[in-house]
Structures are given as C-alpha cells and as structure tokens.
C-alpha cells in the first residue's frame, strides 16, 4: 500500500484526491508538516500561489518540503504548485521551494478571460489529454536535467526532473485521470526502488 499526500493549505484539494484514487493507494490530506513523514509522494494542488506560499512559510512547511523532495520522494505540482517548485520566477528576486531547475512566468496568458481548455499531447501519457488552463503560468526555461514532456504553442507546459513532475494546467478539473495515474506510477516506482 502506498500513501500519497495532497498539500491542503488552500486550493483544489478534493479534485486531486478524486483523481489520485487507485486500488493500492491511500490518500492523505496534509495540513501539518509532520504528516510528510508518513507519505510516499505528494501533490501541490492548484490555488493562489501567493497565498499558498505564505501559508507554507507560516506553518513551517518550507524545510520539511525541501527535505521531502531531496529524499527522492516524488512531488507533483499543478499550476500554483508548479510555481512553488521552480528555482526562478520571472520578475521576482528568487524562487520559492526551488525544487526543479526551471524558470516560470506567472499569469503568463493574462487574466481570467484569457483562461482556456484544450487537448494536449504529453510524452509518456497520451496525445489527447484534457487540459484546463486557468490564469496559468508557463515554463520559460529549463535546466539540463529537466525533461520537457509537453508544449502548447511552442511554450513548455509540462516538465519532469527525475522524481519531480510539474504542469501549468489543472488535470484535476477533468475526469481524465491518465496524467494523475502517470504520477501514481512514479510513486510506485520510487517505492519499489527503495524496497529493493
């Protein structure tokens, strides 16, 4: 049995819980840093990145989250979660958790009226994944260790660096669970590697 956590400080928590469901998986709602010790993988949900960032600091999640990722446990950030994971954020002096070697641009498409949905081809997942972009960020640059898994109009929207995965859209808002199951598989593999 694996345990996957969803960071529940603010945002679309319930939807991720639903999308992650798998027979061998228990989902944990993470509200306290000590809960990180019991889980094998973690999702940073979408929400307001400024708000989530403040709450991460307020509740002493900052170092435990960095340690969690450093220990090789898989992390999946969607939209606001992606912003928290990036080493650099355009227009800001520094990134936040700085887990993945990439630069992101917040609200890259504009305001809410520019938000949209489309079908996306994601390497290793499918070529018709439903993707809802809401005041979404973009990945403008990635480091050498980062693999680009999907682009939209030549801009990077999904990236992976070893056990870390991030995307600028909201897979949790659709009934298309293939991308979540890709992450569940990453957690399964990471756990198998530890148990060998």
């Amino acid at each position: 049995m694996m345990k996957i956590g969803v960071l529940a400080l603010q945002g679309a928590v319930r939807e991720h819980v639903k999308s992650l469901e798998a027979p061998d998986t228990e989902i944990i709602i993470v509200k306290r840093p000590e809960q990180l010790e019991e889980i094998d993988g973690l999702v940073f949900p979408g929400g307001e990145s400024t708000t989530m960032r403040r709450l991460v600091e307020k509740y002493q999640f900052f170092e435990p989250l960095q340690a969690f990722a450093k220990a090789g446990k898989p992390v999946f950030g969607t939209c606001a979660g992606l912003i928290l994971m990036a080493t650099d954020v355009l227009g800001e002096p520094e990134g936040h958790l700085e887990l993945m070697d990439m630069t992101v641009q917040r609200n890259a498409f504009g305001r809410q009226r520019e938000s949209f949905e489309t079908e996306l081809s994601i390497r290793g997942v499918a070529d018709d994944v439903e993707a809802v972009f809401i005041r979404a960020p973009l990945i403008t640059e990635v480091g050498q260790n980062v693999e680009v898994l999907a682009e939209y109009k030549d801009e990077i929207v999904v990236a992976r660096q070893d056990h870390l995965l991030s995307c600028s859209f909201h897979p949790e808002l659709t009934n298309d669970r293939r991308f979540h199951q890709y992450f569940v598989q990453m957690v399964r593999e990471a756990q198998a590697a530890v148990n060998v």
Binding site: T51, C79, E114, S115, E117, V132, I134
Partner: peptide
C-alpha cells in the same frame, strides 16, 4: 482548438479559491 469561457474554465477558477478568503 483552445476554448475560452467554458464551464470548466469558469467554475475551475472558483475551485482554485477554495479554503481561502
């Protein structure tokens, strides 16, 4: 291909506000 102002895009925006003020 991209569609704006769909229910998912409009309702989803509010979903991101959950647990907030």
């Amino acid at each position: 291909m991209a569609e704006r102002g769909t229910d998912r895009v409009k309702r989803g925006m509010a979903e991101m506000q959950k647990g907030g003020v």
